[in-house]
Computed example of a mutant assay.
Amino acid sequence: MALLSINGKIFCGGSLITNSFVLTAAHCVIQNYTQLIVKLGEYDASTTLDGPTSNFGINRAFKHPNYENKTHTYDIALLKLDGTTYYNSAKVMMYGKVLITLSVLPFLGLTQLLDNKCIPPKYAPRIIGGQNAGRAPWMAYLMRNRAFVGGGSLIAYRFVLTAAHCSKLNETLFVRLGEYDLSTTRDGKTQDYRAVDIYRHPYYNAVTQVNDIALLKLDRPVIYTATIRPICILLSPGVRFVINKIKLFTVTGWGQASRYPRMPTKLQQMTVRRYSYSHCYNQPGKLCASNPAQFACKGDAGSPLGAQVRYNGTTIFAQFGVASTFTDNCKAYGIYTDLLYHTHWIAETMQHNWY
């Protein structure tokens, strides 16, 4: 935490994000910002017995170029300190908490991950090919009255992403994580959670399936393991050009494995090719994909559509879509909600309901 003061009076707050930069609100940056003092390490301003603090001046201030003073749109700014901070053990812990907060801010210029723990140690790509999927530790199995209703993906420590039509407001929905093969308990430990809150997109249309996306808040935090881990979600709008270059995606779920109404017990996966919007009713905010040899259908709704991408020199599997609807009775194209249209809503909803 950073405490901004002027003439000895508390003026604003902020957060230390590197050893020389503090993040704050743009309206906190006065015209003569060099008068501001940034204090780090503060806890109780009424005493000096709670530990040492460090004071810094401000070398430069950077308001967001589109900041509006009247509406407070883009109310964010960076302060460059006049010195370099050195972390002690207490401040290192606080620095880690600040990073968690920043990871859900979609408006920073650099490409970010919603939860950087989606990159496990010694990451090896898990989605390779075939019909039965390899382990996809982010997969969520959604249940209503003990019956399967759809898929989803773990995206942060107690949030699951799914399709809005897979959920009903104020209903009792359960989420199982760590599942792979429903026919056995020998495939690893699973964990069941209750969805205590369901956040469907405020502009979801049940008729057209526009904005078919929802967040489920679980009844307790998820402890990550080798078989339970979040999927990577890229937040920066600047990654659109990367997504537009991806021609092949992978979709995983427990949906029908054939054109006959037979539900599989093992997690399924298939590779789908991107097609133009004209094949999928020209719906904006959607991804259109298909595989002539296989198909996604009943039971796949809410499941993640993703692909391997390079992130900071590492290959990660990132989610780019949520299975929504299908054309021509599941015989043609799958329509997926495009996540990049909704990352701001995802991040904002999580921020407001984090605890």
Rank of each mutant, 00 (worst) to 15 (best):
P264R: 10
T48S: 15
G178A: 05
Y180C: 02
L36V: 15
K91S: 10
V222S: 06
T337D: 00
K286W: 04
F159V: 12
Y275F: 11
I231V: 15
V160F: 04
L339P: 12
F295V: 07
K91N: 12
E179R: 14
H342M: 02
L169Y: 12
M270A: 02
Y204R: 07
G8R: 09
N59Y: 03
Y87M: 09
T252M: 05
G96C: 02
E348D: 11
D75Y: 08
I128E: 13
T271N: 07
L81E: 00
A347Y: 14
N32E: 11
F249L: 05
L340V: 06
T111R: 03
G96I: 04
Q35V: 13
C166E: 01
G285A: 05
T343L: 10
N211H: 14
M263R: 11
L154H: 03
I37Y: 05
D219Y: 12
P237C: 09
A289W: 08
Y275I: 10
A318Y: 14
R310S: 13
L4G: 03
T252P: 10
L340T: 01
L287G: 08
L169I: 15
E68V: 15
I316A: 04
I346E: 01
I155V: 07
V210I: 03
Q351G: 02
V239F: 14
I37M: 12
A318D: 03
I243C: 04
L234G: 01
V242W: 15
L234C: 08
V309S: 05
L177P: 00
Y141R: 15
F295L: 03
P65N: 13
T315I: 11
G188K: 10
C166L: 01
Y333F: 13
L40G: 02
G57N: 02
N329Y: 13
V239A: 04
A301Q: 10
F295M: 04
R194K: 15
R194G: 04
T85M: 10
V251N: 03
T314I: 10
F317H: 11
D338L: 09
R274I: 13
G134L: 10
L248T: 12
G151C: 03
Y43I: 07
A124L: 04
N116I: 07
L234K: 09
R274T: 12
N205S: 01
T190D: 04
W138I: 00
T337R: 01
P120S: 09
T101V: 06
S303P: 05
A257C: 07
Y157P: 08
T349L: 02
A318N: 10
D192E: 04
R60T: 14
I346Q: 00
N7M: 06
N244T: 10
K39N: 10
P230F: 14
T162Q: 07
I316K: 12
F174Q: 15
K168A: 10
L102E: 09
L113P: 05
M270R: 06
K117I: 02
R135E: 06
P65T: 05
A289Q: 08
D192Q: 10
Q131T: 14
W354T: 09
I127R: 11
W254F: 14
A301D: 07
D82M: 11
A195T: 08
N353K: 14
T208I: 01
T48N: 12
N205F: 00
Y355D: 01
C232R: 12
N19E: 12
L173N: 14
V251P: 00
V309M: 06
I231K: 13
D300M: 08
F56V: 05
A133D: 01
S103E: 01
